[in-house]
Design a protein around this nucleic acid. Structure first.
Length: 672
DNA sequence: CACCAATCC
């Protein structure tokens, strides 16, 4: 181990004045006081758990400490993973600036669609945890890395949990040659220490740079968190010193309702006229989000009504007051129906702490919790969020593990074992797609392996592979799965101009349903010159951000197909005027989501394999349509106020028995 | 008929 020690590397770049300024900034960070403690812990333990509040500087400084201490000698790399792409890119940029090097040289990052790293020169590399998991395909021991820092581990995403489980295995195989650092704000540290082995795991706590936050609770539970939130904002505005307000609400509808209530209040009350309500959620365009980051106009106070994006992903400066309704929307797989639910539920205790911390970033702040102290202390609010691997469909994760040589998925050493029913649900799904062989449990040759490599949900991956192998409609299928993988509809118009928009959309919308209509949109977008695309989207009431993203996904998917050995002509294959080719291709992957209309007309459906009513989602082209198809497959189902299906395509039921004979017998799909 | 949290490969 001592061989890799040497004096701190001399980067050479950067003048004296800049260097002085950089050091000045770094010296204020709390993590500096723990430099030796951290380096010692990492030197003497295989795994180190670092608990540090936001603002401690751990994400930017720890990789530099390790670099300076020699962990990047011999060409080795220190990795730091993040759950989100923006974070990985921004941290890399910051550290490159601090070190006075150009991004992409000594300091780099690698995320989907963007790789600013160089295998020859990069020594500190920021990645998303999903990207690092994928690097295991090429290098199962991650041998390029000497230390892997898994940051923001409290999020417990599927990718983070997958990575942690793999790292434990890799550590064994590399015989003490790989150090793992798990870093997080408020972590279930004991669980992770137990997972990685108590003797080999150190825990280091770092104080944050947060200011004290004064906490206020309700004396009694409120009946309506929306009303309570609006009243609290008004009261803060009247009674408290200047400073912006951040309000956590579960969803967009609540945000819109709260803002309109505030606007009503400000009309009737001159004292509230200086309150400036603003929405913040992931559905907003970058332009719409900008207002939240700009300082309030002179004499005005911003009140930002936000979803959970503001809890971790987005940081807004100048917030002194936080109003926390105490709820969050979370996706949960309902095993009884096999459908996703979006449930509004009480937040965890650690999430409540995280939200409160948003008030104390620049000076002492206040948090107004719209629940009682007793409630927060009770079992109503769990200590931590349920990890994704214990509540979401696991087929993608299991496919990854299989591809990396994990044979027994039931006995695999998960950070937290998923409920057995969740595992069997995923295994059945994979078997029905012929991704795994039910007898041997192995990935099927080529097909299963390709599905594991594709950055798509397995059913969509199956559609894509079948488009080149069986149907000859790759051009349309690439567009279709790219759109479906984003979920949202590209058709979006302000409510006031809906009629006008609908008229325009008739150029794209076809009777075959959402998927073919969205393919028309995406191919139309891609046929438009790049510089004219924004305007094209505006005139047609289409979501430009979504179509840009779908275009990048399309290109990436074509790259995968080319790597799998499919030639130019196969990639260019098109169904031409025969839409049924694409429809059958969709059935070949989405057959499990086949549904039949319940009445002689209308938008109420039912799964062929049984279950309750499924309604056409309002963003589907079939919503409110005069004529709806009797049989459909859908790309997604989600229960919110009702069970809704979206991404709907008309089908011929005979295709189901032809394309998924093991899943459907002829009698199930025969018309009554 | 009346609507989805935010992420990632």
């Amino acid at each position: 181990m001592s061989a890799r020690r040497h004096e701190g590397p001399d980067e050479g770049a950067g003048g004296f004045v800049q260097q002085y300024f950089r050091n000045e900034q770094r010296q204020r960070l709390p993590v500096l006081k723990h430099r030796l403690q951290l380096l010692y812990a990492i030197e003497t333990h295989l795994t180190t758990i670092v608990i540090g509040e936001p603002g401690s500087g751990k994400s930017t400084q720890l990789p530099q400490f390790l670099h300076e201490a020699g962990w990047t000698a011999d060409g080795k790399v220190v990795a730091c993973t993040q759950p989100r792409r923006i974070a990985a890119a921004m941290l890399a940029q910051r550290v490159a600036d601090e070190m006075g090097v150009e991004l992409g040289t000594t300091v780099g990052f690698s995320v989907r669609f963007s790789d600013a790293s160089d295998p020859q020169t990069t020594r500190i590399k920021y990645l998303t945890d999903g990207t690092l998991v994928r690097e295991c395909y090429a290098d199962p021991l991650l041998s390029a890395y000497s230390v892997i820092i898994v940051d923001e581990a409290q999020d417990r995403t599927i990718a983070t949990d997958t990575l942690l489980a793999l790292l434990k295995k890799i550590q064994r195989k590399r015989r003490g040659d790989l150090r793992v650092v798990i870093s997080s704000a408020t972590l279930d540290a004991e669980r992770l220490q137990a997972f990685f082995g108590k003797d080999d795991t150190a825990i280091v706590s770092i104080a944050g740079q947060l200011f004290p936050v004064d906490t206020q609770y309700l004396d009694a539970p409120c009946e309506n968190y929306l009303t309570a939130a609006v009243e609290t904002v008004a009261r803060i505005h009247e009674l408290e010193a200047p400073g912006d307000i951040l309000v956590f609400l579960p969803g967009k509808d609540d945000i819109a309702a709260a803002i309109s209530q505030i606007e009503e209040l400000t009309h009737g009350d001159a004292r509230l006229a200086s309150l400036q309500p603003l929405p913040m959620h992931a559905g907003l365009s970058t332009d719409e989000q900008r207002a939240v980051f700009e300082p309030a106009a002179a004499g005005m106070r911003k009140a930002i009504f936000a979803t959970n994006v503001a809890e971790t992903s987005v940081t807004i400066d100048g917030v002194l007051y936080v109003v926390d309704c105490g709820f969050v929307k979370q996706r949960v797989l309902d095993l009884a129906t096999g459908l996703d639910h979006l449930v509004t539920q009480p937040i965890s205790k650690s999430s409540a702490r995280q939200r409160a911390g948003r008030a104390g970033r620049t000076q002492p702040g206040k948090v107004f919790r719209l629940y009682t102290h007793e409630a927060l202390g009770s079992s109503l609010h769990p200590r931590h969020e349920v990890p994704e691997a214990c509540r979401l469909p696991l087929a993608p994760m299991l496919l990854t593990l299989k591809a990396l040589g994990v044979n027994n998925l039931v006995r695999f050493d998960y950070v937290q074992p998923p409920p057995p029913a969740l595992l069997s649900h995923a295994l059945e799904a994979l078997a029905s797609l012929s991704a795994i062989d039910l007898q041997t449990g192995a990935l099927t040759q080529d097909f299963g392996l390709y599905l594991a490599e594709l950055p798509l949900d397995p059913p969509l991956g199956a559609c894509l592979l079948n488009s080149v192998r069986r149907f000859g409609c790759a051009r349309e299928a690439v567009a279709a799965v790219a759109m479906l993988s984003l979920g949202e509809s590209p058709f979006s118009a302000p409510s006031g101009r809906m009629a006008e928009a609908r008229e325009d959309w008739r150029d794209f919308v076809v009777q075959e349903g959402d998927v073919l209509s969205r393919v028309n949109v995406l191919l139309g977008y891609q046929d438009t010159p790049t510089r004219a695309r924004q305007q094209w989207c505006r005139t047609h009431f289409l979501n430009a951000r979504l179509l840009d993203q779908a275009t990048r996904i399309s290109r990436q998917l074509e790259g995968y197909l080319a790597r799998f050995g499919y030639g130019k002509s196969e990639l260019a294959s098109s169904c031409g005027r025969d839409a049924s080719l694409l429809q059958r291709c969709l059935v070949s992957g989405l057959f499990a989501n086949a549904a039949r209309r319940r009445g002689p007309s209308g938008g109420s459906y039912q799964l062929l394999r049984g279950g309750g009513a499924l309604d056409i989602h309002p963003s589907s082209v079939y919503f409110g349509a005069d004529a709806t198809p009797e049989y459909v497959v859908f790309a997604s189902a989600m229960t919110t106020t009702k069970a809704y299906i979206n991404g709907v395509t008309a089908i011929d039921p005979a295709w189901l028995t032809a394309l998924a004979p093991n899943y459907y017998s002829a009698s199930q799909t025969a018309p009554v």
